[in-house]
Design a binder for these strands. Structure first.
Length: 865
RNA sequence: GCGAAAGUGGCGGAAUUGGUAGACGCACUGGAUUUAGGUUCCAGCGCCUAUGGCGUGGGGGUUCGAGUCCCCCCUUUCGCACCA
């Protein structure tokens, strides 16, 4: 093969050849082999939206590099792939194109599977799963019934976005500026019954276990901690009637509030309740204006970001509550910024020490009463803004003079003695509502019986199969399909109706990682193989999943543990959150604020200005944004692969940016990646023209070749560390490029050629996880008979790293002034003497002795004069 | 609004533990090769008033030494529970 090696790099020939070979030999098939350490490498599975986008290519290349690297390091690697196949886009596509969601989804899966295979991923396709298939979701339904029986799943009402024109529930993304996306009608909040999973019961464990996940990015853990939001505070009861003596509180009805700032209790000037609070409903009964205001509060979407940014409004209910200590009457307001779902749905308002309350008090001319001041100084009054720091109490009765921290404890104690409150822990985390009023999802396995109530579908009647042959209109077709919902009660045998809601698609993605271990099991959700492979050793996916998906999956793992399905506590040992793929945007102004977005592939730069290729007329350059349909700035990976091959696509993705950062698309960068691969091919081809030679095993080398060999082994050490520990592939590639540049300067003596053979073998193997197809061809050319998939990762020859001299930077007063060369074992005194004697230092000493000399071993000397 | 990150040449980025700022690549410039374009190869490439000085979003601080640590500010991005 060596002498007959094609002098041209032809990815269109070698890539299909390699893929066919791997496929036929089933080299990526994983079996439970306990003789080797296991490595379960998982990338977040794709939603089958139609075709692969660049984000997928990036995600799966990162995963593949890690999987292939660990394979070369001797691990038994599992890398599976599947489809997160239920979801809203299938219903939208069905409406737009008049096709059934199932057919659309399956066609997309088939197409995208082909695309993934063209990337050359080391995936075990025998474990492929799709969440929309009954053999997957039947186990989700089974677990639902188990959890329902345990009381972990329960029913209650919750607010949804209701479109009053289309008579349908809208997802948050279907609400645009408070209106339904299709009807344009003002959206309302509506309470409907839904099923909830008690994630709140696991809040403490979900929080504390974060401390035992060293392989997770700190920022993801911080976001999850904040999301769970454990806060220590005080529940305070405000009596609804004035008290005539202490201790009367017991029989007096109270309004409960929760606060983390009980120290500000004497600064309360009003209380505010949510629109849905019983007290608000009670007050509205005889107050039409208030009833109207409460109705107005129910307009708009349920999204928290919308609620938080809307104008803060309120209305006095006319009701009063009484301060638990001073017995002072306080007005009760209904406020649109108080959330019924958090704490007690009521807050005590302290305008002097809370920004929102301050703004609200100014708007409605409510009193602002400061009670906290910084330690050792006074507050400038009147306040121009809320003082939100903790400090020292004043004007607070017996508590004046205490610090905030001290006062919180003391106030809680006194309240407890009065039976008017106590210390409490609350959580921001709410139970997970999993009911969706949509069609394309996993049916909730519940039967509503007029006599027996909600009955879970018995195991022998599972799965409840979602009918796939349907016509899509506004609203879920199974809600209008008696053949689906008419049934009999499993308990009493009487007429009953099936639940027609489906589950949140986050449920499917909360346990798929475990199912890959035993996707072929048709008698149980999971078996012993799950415990062999779990936890996932490396999970890779977008940072946008930092909270919801990753928290739900952690939660589900604990649920599965507690029904005996898995024996570990956490699903993902190491997490890598990859950044977005972004690209420049181009547009033309159509007037009236409308823009025509133009794809980057259709523009060209001519004489410094960007023009549309088809008409040569200029276009406007927008910002660099996430690749998206709306900005038409997506670059199709398919055309990239067709033009340059999968290896170029993979190399560009890995080289352009470190995995956690966003990656900017660049046509020129792709060219550069391709150029490097052609140079690599040519380097091997040129080297082999000199004839077959064995890799260097020892013997005399010129100083230059010895230096190069040291660089080779330093590079092996660096690349291994970059991939394994730092997961920073761009610097690994850069180091290999540097090594290639250095190699090009070497001579062709036989000893040097042996070192080049050693270097090229190492370079090809180090690049193999990133660009496997070209490396398969090159290793076979370099070492006739070699097989890439059985080649081991190169090892560092410690002897090659030895050196006897080292260069130190020379600084004077912290500024670089020169360099000195010292023996590797030179001590501090010797280095200091060499530095002080150097002409660079003498120039600045001016005959004076040095004030100080700092020696940093192996790095630099700093002389202070 | 709340929570979390990130700002370094013309561009993407490097600098791993407070110790040579700008590795590697792109773009650009000059040269060689070529009928020409492309390719390939060689060299140069932070800025300035250039034997020196200034430079990591802006302002202050700690240190012999700061892109890195601390305080304040600005900008951008991500998430916010029914998009996945």
């Amino acid at each position: 093969m060596d002498s007959r090696m094609d002098p041209q790099y032809r990815p269109e020939i070698i890539e299909p050849e390699a893929q066919q070979h791997w496929d036929e030999k089933q080299v990526f098939r994983a079996t439970e082999d306990s003789t080797k350490p296991k490595y379960y490498c998982l990338s977040m599975f794709p939603y089958p939206s139609g075709k692969l986008h660049m984000g997928h290519v990036r995600n799966y290349t990162i995963g593949d590099v890690l999987a292939r690297y660990h394979h070369m390091k001797g691990f038994n690697v599992l890398q599976p792939m599947g489809w997160d196949a239920f979801g809203l886009p299938a219903e939208n596509a069905a409406l737009a194109n008049n096709v059934a969601p199932a057919g659309w989804t399956y066609a997309n899966i088939d197409y995208m599977r082909g695309q993934l295979k063209r990337l050359g991923l080391a995936v075990d396709w025998s474990r492929e799963l799709a969440t929309c298939k009954p053999d997957y979701y039947r186990w989700e339904q089974w677990l639902f019934t188990e959890l329902f029986k345990k009381g972990v799943i329960y029913q209650k009402t919750a607010a949804v976005n209701w479109d009053p024109v289309d008579h349908t529930v809208l997802a948050n993304e279907q609400v645009i500026d408070g209106r339904g996306w299709r009807s344009g009608a003002l959206v309302e909040k509506r309470d409907i019954p839904m099923y909830f999973i008690r994630i709140s019961a696991y809040a403490e464990e979900l929080l504390t276990e974060l401390d035992h996940l060293p392989g997770w990015p700190e920022r993801v853990k911080t976001m999850q901690r904040n999301w769970i939001g454990k806060s220590f505070g005080v529940e305070i009861h405000f009596p609804l009637n004035a008290r005539h003596q202490v201790g009367e509180g017991d029989a007096n009805p109270v309004l409960k509030v929760f606060t983390t700032r009980a120290d500000t209790l004497f600064g309360v000037t009003y209380v505010a309740v949510a629109a849905e609070h019983p007290l608000a409903t009670q007050a509205a009964a005889g107050n039409p204006a208030l009833a109207e205001f409460i109705a107005e509060c129910k307009q708009g979407s349920v999204a928290e970001a919308d609620m938080a940014t809307m104008e803060k409004k309120g209305m006095d209910t006319g009701l009063k509550v009484y301060h638990p200590f001073t017995n002072e009457p306080l007005p009760v307001f209904v406020a649109n910024y108080v959330l019924m779902g958090y704490g007690e749905g009521a807050v005590m308002a302290v305008p002097a020490h809370d920004e929102r309350d301050f703004a609200f008090a100014q708007k409605y001319a409510l009193p602002i009463k400061p009670v906290i001041k910084p330690a050792g100084s006074d507050l400038a009054q009147p306040l121009t803004e809320a003082y939100t720091e903790q400090g020292v109490l004043f004007d607070s009765g017996d508590f004046s003079g205490r610090t905030s921290e001290d006062a919180i404890d003391k106030i809680a104690l006194v309240l407890k003695n009065l039976s008017l409150g106590e210390k409490r822990t609350t959580w921001r985390l709410r139970d997970w509502g999993i009911s969706r009023q949509r069609y394309w999802g996993c049916p909730i396995p519940i039967i509503h019986c007029p006599t027996c109530g909600d009955v879970p579908v018995p195991v022998d009647q599972l799965p409840v199969v979602l009918p796939e042959d349907v016509k899509i209109d506004i609203g879920s077709p199974i809600k209008k399909m008696p053949s689906f919902y008419e049934t009999t009660c499993p308990t009493c045998g009487g007429k009953a109706e099936r639940e027609t809601d489906t589950m949140d698609t986050f449920v499917e993605s909360s346990w798929y990682y475990a199912r890959y271990a035993c996707a072929d099991n048709d008698t149980a959700m999971l078996d012993g193989r799950a415990n062999h492979w779990l936890p996932v050793d490396q999970y890779i996916g977008g940072i946008e999943h930092a909270i919801l998906h990753l928290l739900y999956a952690r939660f589900f793992h604990k649920l599965m543990r507690d029904v005996g399905l898995v024996n570990s506590n956490e699903p993902f040992a190491n997490l890598l959150t990859q950044g977005m793929v972004i690209a420049d945007t181009y547009y033309r102004d159509l007037g009236e604020g409308k823009k025509q977005w133009i794809n980057p592939a259709d523009v060209d730069q001519r004489d410094g200005i960007w023009v549309l290729k088809t008409d040569g007329q200029p276009v406007i350059v927008g910002g660099t944004e996430k690749m998206s349909k709306s900005k038409n700035n997506g670059v199709d990976p398919q055309s990239l692969i067709d033009q340059y091959g999968a290896d170029t696509a993979r190399l560009f993705m890995m080289f352009a940016a470190p995995p956690e950062q966003s990656l900017e698309w660049s046509d020129a960068g792709v060219e550069g990646a391709n150029r490097f691969l052609r140079r690599l091919w040519k380097a091997v081809s040129d080297h082999l023209e000199g004839g077959v030679i064995a890799a260097y095993r020892g013997g005399e080398l010129s100083a230059q070749t010895q230096d190069f060999r040291r660089q080779l082994h330093q590079t092996i050490a660096k690349v291994s560390d970059d991939i394994e520990r730092r997961k920073q592939f761009n610097t690994a590639i850069a180091a290999i490029m540097e090594l290639m540049n250095a190699m090009a300067k070497l001579d062709n003596h036989p000893a040097t050629r042996a070192v080049k053979q050693e270097a090229l073998e190492a370079i090809v193997l180090m690049l193999a996880p990133i660009v496997p197809h070209i490396c398969r061809s090159l290793i076979m050319a370099l070492k006739p008979g070699a097989c890439l998939m059985s080649s081991a990762w190169p090892t560092v020859d410690e002897a090659a790293l030895v050196r006897d001299e080292i260069e130190l930077m020379l600084q004077v007063n912290g500024k670089l002034r020169g360099k000195i060369t010292v023996a590797i074992d030179a001590d501090k005194d010797a280095i200091e003497q060499t530095a002080l004697a150097s002409p660079e230092v003498q120039k600045f000493m001016d005959g004076q002795p040095a004030k100080k000399v700092v020696v940093v071993p192996g790095r630099l000397v700093n002389v202070v004069v």
